[in-house]
Design a protein around this nucleic acid. Structure first.
Lengths: 335, 335
DNA sequence: CTGAAAGCGCTTACAG
DNA sequence: CTGAAAGCGCTTACAG
């Protein structure tokens, strides 16, 4: 592979000058610049990223830490963040925890030696900050930007970019109550998911607006399970137990479709007997029948905010500690 | 950050010895080894990955190139490949082409200077090998292992790991015909997707087994569109045009759910009037109603085969040029 | 079995 | 505005 040295010789300059032209840092004569660029062009020179990283102290990689990339929302986030990072010359490394949260600690520990430019935490799990805190600080001190892109961790000094989960869930409850769809049940991970908690909080808030409080028998915490099957089982059990509810706010579209299947398999109709609202506004929710009413999340906006943070450089201090991205209820057939 | 030098001093040995202990390469006395390991432990030493990469000529990153990470199958592949790579000490970089195939060329060009250990091509697009070939060769020559994990490119010298798409589609047709569900239509990307072509080939083969040939009016190439909306539109048009068909083989679950929605919106029933079979066996297909019959893909098996390739080292020559992973039809309510 | 030394390919003070 | 030189933190022949 051709190196700076080859380019320098070809252009009749020093390696320092080549580097300066390519960095665009210090001033260089227009003609020197042109000669260097021509040499780069002719030799097809590509700067060695490993050498550059070593010398400058860190690389261009940003790790996205997900809990479960197979969930539609995280796949969308990965896509949008990758596109955004690529546009500013950064690479996305994917770390899927698969709900084994202990691996996060290990990754954060290694982040500086890997030369990571940043770490984006998007696992919804409730973070054990007592354990994670020290290693986050060490990474930050070493120049790794650690951001939270799912839950608000600004109290722990982590810049956060989060959806308005409370507002989204409250809007769903408001919509359902407006159509006289009470009692409203809730399905989500509450004990183990910070996002689930926020959505439950929105559910509670929405009910409070109607002068109601959550009925504990209609709050279904599926912290032991995940995705559609959890929604299916918990809803099936509720029906078998004879609980009365006219609608369900599910903390994800996956949970919602599982719950709808349970209702259908129980011989009830959607939305006639039970109405549903999900979270994520995933594509398949638009095409299942009945189509799924859902709180839309704006992963592109998250990605843009992430990009801003990495572009900000030293004046990043001006950015807010916690940025909240609005959510929007999209009404379809299920509610 | 603590470096080898610090560890060496602490252990009273040279940096070379520290490196040998950590690499586990050349022989070292048990006690020297113990001293070094203790120093590593006490200082919390983590080898600098950037320096190691520079010195050894390449890093530990493997790029996964997808066409559309939001499609369930690719998200599952990303998850499984990441887990497999992590188990052998490699990192996954995600490059989502977003169906802009020109970017593949650019990535392959940069692969050596990025120090990539490998590139996994999982875009389904028909590759322009005349254009891609030279840059693949250059990357390979520079030590980057380029694999195809979606389409068979072994004729072009690329080790390939692919699903049995032909067999899967043929099995779907066989199942539908066995239930007297002809005429059978096909939806997929044919002109622009190598995977779509393979599935179409399986469709043709399945029909041939019944002594039939494809009816051109029932072969719907959606090379201009993607995902559920394309399935919805093309099926809606077929219904509006008054075409007669009793079942549909869709080249993805996304296309299938879109097509099912079109049938439902047309006032017909699934599977009563039209039966459906998809590809991917995605989770939401299990819970939509009617649930979706689908050809299951084994992304874990793909991931394992990828891991084997990277673990193989020099005796990788023993691995087959093209490995075919079996697929399996999962019958549910839609067919 | 171990150490001294060179070098991977860059970038960046330091001089001029 | 440009060059000579040092050095980022490792690994690996080369000696011993």
């Amino acid at each position: 592979m051709t190196s700076v040295l080859a380019v320098a010789k070809h252009a009749g300059v020093s390696t320092a000058t080549v580097s300066r032209v390519l960095r665009g840092s210090l001033p260089v004569t227009a003609e020197t610049r042109a000669r260097v660029l021509e040499a780069v062009e002719q030799l097809g020179y590509q700067p060695n990223e490993m050498a550059r990283s070593l010398r400058s102290g860190r690389g261009r990689g940003v790790a996205l830490v997900t809990g479960d990339i197979e969930q539609g929302v995280y796949a969308a986030l990965a896509r949008d963040v990758q596109a955004e990072l690529e546009s500013i010359g950064l690479d996305l490394l994917l770390f899927n925890l698969g709900h084994r949260e202990d691996r996060l600690h290990h990754l954060l520990e290694r982040a500086p030696s890997l030369g990571l430019r940043g770490v984006l935490l998007s696992s919804p799990h409730v973070m054990d900050m007592a354990r994670i805190g020290p290693v986050v600080e060490a990474a930050t001190a070493a120049g790794v930007d650690v951001l939270s892109v799912s839950q608000d961790l600004s109290d722990f000094g982590l810049r956060s970019i989060v959806h308005d989960n409370v507002g989204g869930a409250a809007a769903a409850v408001r919509h359902l109550c407006g159509r006289n769809r009470g009692p409203v049940a809730f399905i989500g991970r509450i004990a183990t998911s910070a996002i689930g908690r926020a959505r439950f909080e929105g559910y509670r808030k929405g009910l409070a607006e109607q002068g109601q409080a959550p009925d504990p028998t209609l709050v279904w915490d599926i912290s032991h399970g995940y995705r559609a099957d959890a929604g299916y089982r918990v809803t099936g059990k509720a029906l078998a137990d004879g609980l009365r509810f006219r609608s369900v706010v599910a903390a994800s579209d996956e949970l919602a479709i599982g719950a709808m299947a349970a209702v259908a398999d129980h011989g009830l109709s959607v939305p006639g007997d039970v109405a549903f609202s999900g979270f994520g506004n995933l594509e398949w929710g638009v095409y299942c029948r009945p189509s799924l009413t859902s709180v839309a999340l704006d992963t592109e906006a998250i990605a843009r905010a992430v990009g801003q943070t990495f572009s900000a450089g030293d004046n990043g201090a001006a950015l807010p500690a916690c940025r909240v991205i609005p959510t929007q209820l999209i009404v379809r057939q299920s509610a």
